[in-house]
């Protein structure tokens, strides 16, 4: 701390705070979504600055990319929806923000004070990770923790993503069969300018390659199934926006691909409950998981269409 904080970090910090305000303060949904998009970019930079490339990639792919795509879609589709609180105007409109700010400040102060006072003890697994890395077949330590040492957490997390997609599909029309939950999503897309169309044609293959690179680089470097899946999902969203006919593919393959990764992971885990995975098994699971994550995120995107339009009582 002798040399002070570099100017770049100060700018980044101020920018982060500013983009948070841009996300929270505006009343228009579109402006809020744009604010979040900017926040995602700056958060990614902050993670990079902190040296956490894996977190930065995940933030860029899922937090910044896919989430912002969902929000922009919603705000474009229904820009003027009133907020749930708008119906009943509160007596003191300043009361809620004031109490909220006060609580947040108190919470942050207490947590920060405790955090700074506490004697941090180093993770007990530092030495153990280094010692056990050669048993894993992968070279990158974060991949080792995610897929080998704590594979059970990753398994349950991929199940959470799969079940999120299942839940979202369950809210649509029909409950079983290939069209279940998707019928509202397969309508015609709004037309887009020719230049954007052209741009997507150029970008989609490059993005696809980037997704594959993230997947296979994961064993030796930063990257992995979650980041790669997010990028592949972005490719699908772009292709769909560019009117590439994906309906048939979606109807036939979305569900099988969605569950294949989790099923393969569970079967492998049942066979390896007390012994580590071998590298080929690991690689197969990682590929299937990536496809499953891409399918899950794409399903969530497809299901944003309101299924109860023109509802009639039964």
């Amino acid at each position: 701390m002798t040399g002070g904080v570099p100017a770049a970090d100060l700018v980044l910090g101020v920018g982060l705070l500013a983009s948070v305000l841009c996300t929270v303060l505006p009343h228009s949904r579109l402006a809020q979504s744009m604010g979040l998009l900017g926040l995602g970019v700056l958060t990614t930079l902050a993670w990079l600055r902190l040296g956490s490339v894996d977190v930065a990639l995940a933030e860029a792919g899922i937090g910044g990319g896919i989430l912002a795509a969902l929000l922009v879609w919603v705000s474009v589709r229904s820009p003027a929806q009133p907020s749930p609180d708008a119906g009943t105007a509160p007596r003191w409109p300043w009361l809620r923000p004031a109490v909220g700010t006060l609580s947040a400040v108190t919470l942050i102060l207490i947590t920060a004070a405790v955090w700074l006072r506490a004697e941090q003890s180093l993770p007990a697994w530092d030495a153990a990770v280094t010692a056990a890395m050669d048993r894993t077949g992968v070279e990158h330590e974060i991949t080792g923790v995610l897929l080998v040492f704590r594979f059970y957490d990753t398994l349950l997390e991929s199940a959470v993503l799969m079940l999120t997609a299942v839940a979202v599909l369950a809210l649509g029309r029909e409950d079983v069969g290939p069209r279940a939950g998707l019928s509202a999503a397969l309508g015609t897309q709004p037309s887009i300018p020719a230049s954007l169309h052209w741009l997507i044609r150029v970008f989609a293959p490059a993005l696809f390659l980037a997704g594959l690179w993230l997947l296979f680089a994961g064993s030796t470097d930063s990257g992995g199934a979650f980041q790669s899946g997010a990028v592949l999902c972005a490719v699908l969203i772009l292709l769909r926006s560019a009117h590439v006919p994906l309906e048939k593919l979606t109807l036939r393959w979305l569900r099988p691909v969605l569950v294949a990764g989790v099923v393969a992971f569970i079967l492998a885990a049942l066979a390896h409950l007390s012994a580590p995975f071998s590298f080929p098994v690991l690689l197969g699971i990682e590929v299937l998981l990536t496809l499953g994550i891409a399918a899950g995120l794409y399903a969530i995107y497809l299901c944003l269409e309101n299924p109860v339009q023109r509802e009639v009582s039964a």
């Binding site: 079983v176 019928s183 397969l186 023109r310 509802e311 009582s313």
Partner: peptide, 20 residues
């Protein structure tokens, strides 16, 4: 042709039972 069977504009109704 799947697109011929699109039901985006078809009205929807609620039925009991959800296999989800």
């Amino acid at each position: 042709d799947h697109r011929a069977a699109l039901t985006e504009d078809a009205p929807a109704a609620w039925r009991t039972g959800h296999a989800g």
